[in-house]
Design a protein around this nucleic acid. Structure first.
Length: 500
DNA sequence: AGCAAGGATTCCTATGTCGC
DNA sequence: GCGACATAGGAATCCTTGCT
């Protein structure tokens, strides 16, 4: 075959992505890697052939030599990264330990990386030949040698985390120690990825550490994992030695948290910033919440000028202030109102029909809609489950703040926080962009038909065009990222529909 | 409360560039 | 040739939202 078997041969088309079987191929690759990080071309050819003869490769695209080459290259890079990260974390952990993880925690859980790549190799009864040292030499089985990670984003067993300290998990770790794992290697993983922690609960129960498992396909495991998480949550609350996963709560959070959180989702709701808690038309607790709305609206008004300066639209800011004041009044009115609901399509249609010329482009959709539809309780009422909850701070009752900056600071930290954060950063609340099904989706679909992979230039162009539409005069502007994501997800959707 | 849709995020592979 | 770094994009998953 040519040197470039699949790249560049199909300009404008999707590159074929190679995936390695986590059960049969990856362990082999790791074993080979542990024996020799720099195999010769002939060796890699043999590896390729061996993998291509596996049952797991049947029905899939045969591996090319470049796949093997790339894999080894990436594995070497990953090892270096892992060693570097480990070195850094070792330096950190040898310090004052002010990250909240006590020495007791460290010592009590020596198997911080409880599953090594090789550990899943059914062919390697010796345990995969041990880890590799940071100099890249082959592993000797020395327990002090830290393990490596073949990829910075690889799904591995998580090192210590307070939520993961189940007795079951501990037992599993103790009973199935990975090769090359030691107390020395048990320092903070760096960067600390909570998504790994989240996944660990299910994956740890799996004999195959690499394999991703669909949540819904494994309900029992999920329940087990959730139960474990719950147990650990309790432990966090009752055992002082467990590191709180989030920084000290803000003054704003204090009040709400003092009320307690009874719902799963509600537990991650308290915003770090004063957000708007619009009054509910049905909830008996709406009057106490209304001052928060007023405060938040006032705060937002104070923030407007700075933001508007960027857009060189001072007059618009003034108008926006006015509209916010109006929305505040509307909210006041809506607190005592109750009107029928509107469908999303109707909202979009009404937005076009009724909102002409009103510059609320900076508003998040929920607040903008609340401003425009003061009588629609959808935009003011708390969700159903909040009625039974002692706290009003449920996610649906929180209207995201005005600016993107504010979005970021309004994240609700909580036990379900995840993603790539260090544990000292509050989790950002995910915001969702609304794309108008009446005016925008048809355009996007038309563009999609013309080109499923538009260039960055075209993405910008599409974005620009969409933002000139009337709909975007009323609602937050789209960013190229949003358009790109739409294309990405639409490709996935189309493919999904084709397979079904 | 549960479900579906779909936007957002994470993980992983592939590729390119630059410097050594 | 290799390492470091950046980036694109598919697949899988998460999570928000609307609806019943």
């Amino acid at each position: 075959s040519s040197g470039t078997p699949y790249l560049g041969l199909m300009p404008g088309k999707t590159r074929i992505r190679t995936s390695f079987d986590p059960e049969h191929e990856i362990p082999r690759l790791h074993k080979w890697f542990s024996h020799n990080q720099h195999p010769t071309r002939d060796q890699m050819m043999r590896y390729m052939h061996e993998l291509n003869t596996l049952e797991s490769r049947r029905g899939r695209r045969p591996l090319d030599l470049t796949n093997i080459i790339y894999w080894f290259k990436n594995a070497r890079a990953a090892q270096r990264r892992a060693c570097k990260a480990l070195d850094d974390s070792m330096e950190d952990s040898s310090g004052a330990g002010d990250d909240g993880r006590s020495g007791e925690d460290m010592g009590g859980h020596s198997q911080h990386r409880d599953s090594l790549p090789d550990s899943g190799d059914p062919d390697d009864s010796s345990g995969g030949g041990g880890g590799l040292d940071c100099n890249g030499s082959s592993g000797s089985g020395d327990a002090s040698i830290p393990p490596y990670l073949p990829n910075k984003n690889a799904v591995y067993m998580i090192p210590f985390h307070p939520y993961l300290q189940t007795s079951q998990a501990s037992h599993a770790r103790m009973s199935t120690p990975g090769p090359g794992v030691s107390a020395e290697s048990a320092g903070d993983d760096q960067p600390y990825d909570l998504s790994l922690a989240k996944r660990r609960s299910s994956e740890e129960l799996s004999p195959v550490p690499y394999k991703r498992q669909a949540r819904k396909a494994l309900p029992s495991q999920q329940e087990e994992a959730e139960g474990a998480a719950k147990d650990n949550k309790t432990q966090d609350l009752t055992h002082g030695k467990s590191r709180p996963p989030f920084p000290a709560k803000s003054p704003n959070m204090a009040d709400s948290e003092a009320e307690g959180h009874s719902t799963k989702r509600g537990s991650n709701s308290p915003p770090a910033n004063p957000s708007i808690f619009l009054p509910s038309s049905t909830s008996p607790i709406c009057p106490p919440r209304f001052p928060a709305l007023l405060d938040a609206a006032s705060k937002m008004r104070q923030e407007i000028p700075a933001h508007s300066e960027e857009d060189q639209a001072t007059s618009e800011a003034e108008l926006l202030k006015l509209r916010l004041k109006q929305s505040q009044d509307y909210a006041d009115y809506a607190m005592h109102s109750n009107v029928s609901r509107l469908t999303a399509a109707n909202m979009a249609a009404l937005s076009l029909a009724q909102m002409g010329g009103l510059p609320l482009a900076q508003l998040p959709p929920s607040l903008a809609m609340a401003a425009y539809y003061p009588m629609d309780p959808r935009f003011y009422s708390a969700p159903q489950h909040s009625a039974s909850s002692p706290t009003p701070l449920t996610r649906s009752s929180v209207v995201t703040p005005l600016h993107p900056h504010a979005h970021q600071s309004a994240s609700p930290p909580g036990p379900h926080a995840r993603g790539q954060m260090s544990g000292s950063e509050p989790r950002k609340r995910r915001t969702r962009v609304f794309i108008d099904p009446l005016t925008e989706i048809p355009k996007l679909e038309k563009w999609f038909l013309e080109d499923t992979h538009p260039s960055a230039f075209m993405i910008d162009k599409f974005c620009e065009e969409l933002n000139t539409c009337e709909y975007r005069h009323k609602f937050p502007k789209l960013e190229p990222k949003n358009v790109q994501l739409w294309f990405k997800n639409h490709r996935a959707k189309v493919k999904r529909m084709k397979t079904v």
